[in-house]
Design a protein around this nucleic acid. Structure first.
Lengths: 151, 151
DNA sequence: TATTGTTATACTCTATAACTATA
DNA sequence: TATAGTTATAGAGTATAACAATA
């Protein structure tokens, strides 16, 4: 268990990280805002899935996910085929165009990071990724386990 | 220099960190949205300053900063006294009420983090803070040094 | 003429709630 | 009746550009 001062410092750093995210977002193509990019990244990473699962992985509400998905579907980057076992759902899958785009996005993100983090060792980058993943998991676990009592 | 795959992983983690920030934001009092809280945190951390300097430290545009500042000033958490040497500027300073609030905010942030990161050692927390600070600095340096060529 | 701030406008992201269709 | 997804609405954050006052 860390001291309060350490938590306050971490809170400050988390708040400030928005600037980095905004810088990164600037490398995205015009038609592909960060929310749309996130959808493509998750589909590329985890394969085809329904919207509910996507929302879970993105840790945002399904209503928001639905809009991002509509955006990328309208542009032909994913297709939505009927789910065989549940006609309420559709299966989301990257199209060839989507796969091309996600490759381009990965390149741009990587180039931007490599450019700014010139002095970072492979281990530095790995360590930061790993700590962020762990933090996210520790928050997510709690979200899942907390019994929500409706007002 | 790290490999491309490591940068892609970092990009994913950065994208996903929004969920943690939103969870943290939920502990804030109703009248104090995250942008307002950030203003108070910086003033508490760095002492009185003008808006321009505040915008720099927050790494957001001055126009945005101006609105956050108006919000906290309207609620009596800061005062704006005339800058003695430049009548275009005012000096922003926490009021006693603002100082009370920032103490409350720090407590809430710390409690939330301590609650979720129960298993983290002091060193884990310190290391994550330090890596985030370094990343922010490496991005910020570039922003400052890049010559912006207007289109 | 250049700089400090403010305001108007527009865009993106997000959540809540109401609604449709299917289980 | 419960669940998957969509849509409408509203709130928060941000940037750009036009504008005011002062340097």
């Amino acid at each position: 268990m860390a001291e309060q001062g350490q938590y306050e410092e971490l809170a400050r750093q988390l708040s400030a990280i928005g600037a980095v995210k905004r810088d990164l977002a600037r490398v995205l193509p015009h038609e592909c805002p960060p929310g749309a990019a996130a959808v493509l990244v998750v589909l590329d990473r985890h394969g085809e899935m329904r919207i509910g699962r996507l929302a879970e992985l993105l840790a945002i509400d399904m209503s928001v996910t639905s809009r991002h998905v509509a955006h990328v579907a309208e542009r032909g980057w994913i297709d939505r085929s009927p789910a065989p076992e549940d006609r309420r759902s559709r299966i989301l899958r990257l199209t060839p165009a989507g796969r091309e785009l996600i490759t381009e996005l990965s390149d741009r993100y990587s180039r931007a990071l490599a450019d700014h983090l010139r002095d970072w060792s492979d281990d530095d980058v790995r360590q930061l990724s790993s700590l962020l993943a762990r933090m996210r998991a520790d928050f997510g676990d709690c979200r899942a386990s907390t019994t929500r009592i409706p007002a």
